[in-house]
Design a protein around this nucleic acid. Structure first.
Length: 290
DNA sequence: CTGTGGTCCTGTATGC
DNA sequence: TGCATACAGGACCACA
């Protein structure tokens, strides 16, 4: 699943292809991926055609391609979205949804099996699309105020994983890297954020940044400029994961088999020893008054 | 503010 | 062989 490192890898790949190019034609093969475009598929195609594209930007898991006139093309990969670059006549991928012909003869394709992702034109969105103004700065953003983020996390009473996945607080972290960060920091996913303390919150955020940085470096080395891709199924970083997907496998720190649990309607993986529930974690009704 | 659970999607794996 | 079910989960929304 594309999280921050994968989206950043795609951003870099797209940059090499689209920067300075003009859109020659747009073909919408399926309406769903442009559902967030207010004017519908036809308007999406016509309003994109003729635009000159700038360097792609990113916040969290969102990408946008600024236009010279101040608008932008906003994109989210969802669960299974990919960008590919092909010759216009090349055979269509099975789940090709939107085709964007560039003025240099290349064709950028948005391919998305499950169609949780999407594209839309954001009026005035070149600097920061209004549609994602609620998304917080991510951990790789040079303008992030880490002290403020530690304080914001510490002000939440929710479980720490819920807070990590809240894109308004800090963005780019999904289910996989949340589990990895919590494993590295030795914290239970349901530990209330407001009882962790600033040191442990900082440790969790440091771990999240470190694991995403490592994944980004791994992705960058295997990147092919003519095949702008992100593929969660065959992810290049899978081998490096310490927690996610390792149910019953031995913890790489203490050897205890990891456990899989349902949390927020998705799977969570943790070490029952390194990430044991604390007194505050499993607090039943009425256990948190102060 | 907080937490829960449903919805959107399609493909793969598993069970009977 | 085929049909049903579970699962994958990011973002969003209704609801309590």
């Amino acid at each position: 699943m594309p999280e921050l490192p994968e989206v950043e890898t795609v951003r870099r790949g797209l940059a090499a292809v689209v920067d300075g190019r003009e859109v020659a034609a747009v073909t919408v093969l399926h309406p769903r991926p442009v559902r967030r475009h207010a004017g519908g598929p036809v308007d999406f195609a016509t309003s994109l055609t003729g635009r000159r594209l700038g360097t792609p930007r990113r916040r969290g898991k969102y990408l946008w391609l600024p236009f010279a006139d101040g608008d932008a093309l906003l994109a989210h990969l969802g669960m299974s979205g990919q960008f590919r670059v092909d010759a216009p006549g090349a055979a269509l991928q099975r789940h090709a949804r939107v085709l964007v012909d560039l003025d240099d003869g290349r064709q950028v394709r948005f391919v998305d099996q499950r169609m949780f992702g999407g594209l839309s034109v954001s009026p005035g969105g070149a600097e920061l699309p209004a549609e994602i103004a609620h998304v917080g700065r991510d951990l790789l953003d040079p303008d992030l105020d880490l002290d403020a983020l530690v304080a914001a996390v510490g002000g939440r009473r929710s479980g720490i994983k819920r807070v990590l996945l809240d894109q308004r607080v800090t963005s780019g972290i999904g289910n996989i890297y949340a589990d990895e960060a919590l494993w590295r920091a030795g914290v239970h996913f349901d530990h209330p954020a407001d009882t962790l303390g600033p040191e442990r919150i900082r440790a969790v955020l440091d771990a999240a940044r470190d694991v995403m940085t490592a994944a980004l470096e791994a992705g960058g080395t295997s990147f092919d400029a003519l095949y702008v891709h992100v593929n969660g199924e065959s992810g290049y970083f899978d081998r490096s994961l310490d927690a996610y997907g390792r149910a019953d496998a031995p913890c790489r720190r203490c050897g205890t088999p990891l456990v899989r649990e349902r949390f927020m309607n998705r799977s969570s993986f943790r070490c029952p020893v390194c990430q044991a529930a604390s007194a505050t974690t499993a607090s039943p009704v009425g256990g948190r008054s102060r």
